[in-house]
Design a protein around this nucleic acid. Sequence first.
DNA 1: CTACGAGTTGAAGCGCGCTTCAAGTCAAGC
DNA 2: GCTTGACTTGAAGCGCGCTTCAACTCGTAG
Lengths: 138, 138
Amino acid sequence: MRELSIGEVAQATGLSASALRYYEKVGLLPAPPRTSRRRRYDERVFGRIELIRVALDAGFTIRETRTFLSGFAADTPPAERWRALAERKLPEVERAIERTQRMKRLLESSFRCNCLQLADCERYLSAARRRRPRRRDH
Amino acid sequence: MRELSIGEVAQATGLSASALRYYEKVGLLPAPPRTSRRRRYDERVFGRIELIRVALDAGFTIRETRTFLSGFAADTPPAERWRALAERKLPEVERAIERTQRMKRLLESSFRCNCLQLADCERYLSAARRRRPRRRDH
DNA sequence: CTACGAGTTGAAGCGCGCTTCAAGTCAAGC
DNA sequence: GCTTGACTTGAAGCGCGCTTCAACTCGTAG
């Protein structure tokens, strides 16, 4: 079984060496054995990295990904662990979708005003504010 | 025309006083006159703040918002300036939408595997990697 | 006189996922 | 013996939009 340097793993996965070191530091990747301080990976690291990428691509933070990979309930099958974490994550992602869609709508539709100067917009909005109820949604 | 303290403006807009000071520092809000160092706003600040909120809500960064508010082409009407900036911003926001939607799909659909242990997933993925072409989309 | 509360400033901190830097280590090739 | 190049480490930096902090200044009320 061929051993790989960090550079080779980086090359093969498209990640940077510094990212791999970082993943190790934060506990996503197990620390591989070393030969005169240099990391020597074996091929199984690719599976692990794939898992990490899927989790991060799905929007999980490093911390959440670590929970998935090495956290609680090691006896529960991965698919079920994923489902549990995903269920908790979903609302957040859905809010993100809505937010970005709102942003798109705002970009496309806002400022139909005919003001010739920003100052006119400002005066108009200040005046409108006195007539309308104020709302903050955040 | 009533003068307002930073606290009153904060209260009325739902922003924090520190955010208002920050907006002033980065050039989104003009520096109001001061009475013994304290900011004294007049009502027109509300129009300005409304403009800022719309721009930030639409996804513009502080820098872009500043460009919109006080940047180039002061002779061009606001609506047109907005359109120009929005057009440049749209692709980015659309990418964000697609990204979050991909995240949602990943959360919902991934990990249909039947592995009982993560290690099984890892081995499976490492093996799959040897058989399939590798792709990195980022 | 004293205490309080709301304001002031510049600098530092935060969370996130890395990257970058400085300074060193090591093996192989010439 | 010297250079090269890939690696090592811990610490600091980044971009973003603020927040938080320490130390100070005022005006007013009691």
